[in-house]
Design a protein around this nucleic acid. Sequence first.
DNA 1: TCGATAATCTACTAAAACTATAGGGTAAAA
DNA 2: TTTTACCCTATAGTTTTAGTAGATTATCGA
Lengths: 136, 136
Amino acid sequence: MLSKKTKYGLKALTYLASVGTKEPVQIAEIAKHENISQKFLESILLTLRRNGFLGSKKGKGGGYYLIKEPHEIPMTAVMRVLEGPIAMVPCVSLNFYEKCDDCPDEEECSVHKLMLQVRDSALDVYRKNTLADLIS
Amino acid sequence: MLSKKTKYGLKALTYLASVGTKEPVQIAEIAKHENISQKFLESILLTLRRNGFLGSKKGKGGGYYLIKEPHEIPMTAVMRVLEGPIAMVPCVSLNFYEKCDDCPDEEECSVHKLMLQVRDSALDVYRKNTLADLIS
DNA sequence: TCGATAATCTACTAAAACTATAGGGTAAAA
DNA sequence: TTTTACCCTATAGTTTTAGTAGATTATCGA
């Protein structure tokens, strides 16, 4: 299940992209437009800023804005920051690999075999979608 | 993240399939072979039985066994029973559809648009894999 | 320059939900 | 009467989803 954090984060990014301008947009405006708890959104936008997706400006006329162009923001990057690993099991993760402690042989493991395919197919989708593709 | 319930369930099914025979296999044997907490596995096998994947036999010589042939068990069915909906958001779920209460227009929603593709790609994988495909 | 105001930033807390597991007893089959 | 699945309950731990309180920084008007 997709976490609300990711859901809200995606919606916020989409909103910022759809606004188009590089002018800062206030948290309150995003929260209201997308029906998101403002305080929760606050922390989400913060992590998006810390990870290089957003810039921010304090004080009057402040807010958040996209640093890059929407078509330069692949969903792989967004998902990894908001939702974590794309793989459903650490043993098939590209960026967060971990060996299963219960599994003696990865090559023989049915879960590994299946989840490798799932990861690849999800990766395909996330790679071919940028933020620009999600705006209608 | 894949739950351990699903992981263990898949491993148990794979083990039963790899044994080949229709003879009942005890919970303890499966648990030991796959390094699974026996008590936890117990409840997992129970739900697999209730959902028509396994048969069981009590008493001496009892245990669990596959009801169908491995190639007749698609991963879609297994995943839906163990992990729940394949979709990451209810609004793109085929079998568990629910409207988002915060989202005014699904057609315009970026999350909807992205997760629809993710669902379809995952569905592809699960549909073309049966239990038989996971045995090496 | 000095405050007032507007906004982000930070840390702490907490309720709720979910996950994984353990315990103990019941029922049925051999 | 032994062996096994079955069933119910509890619980520790983790994650999620926020809410609260205030600090910090930038802008603007006087």
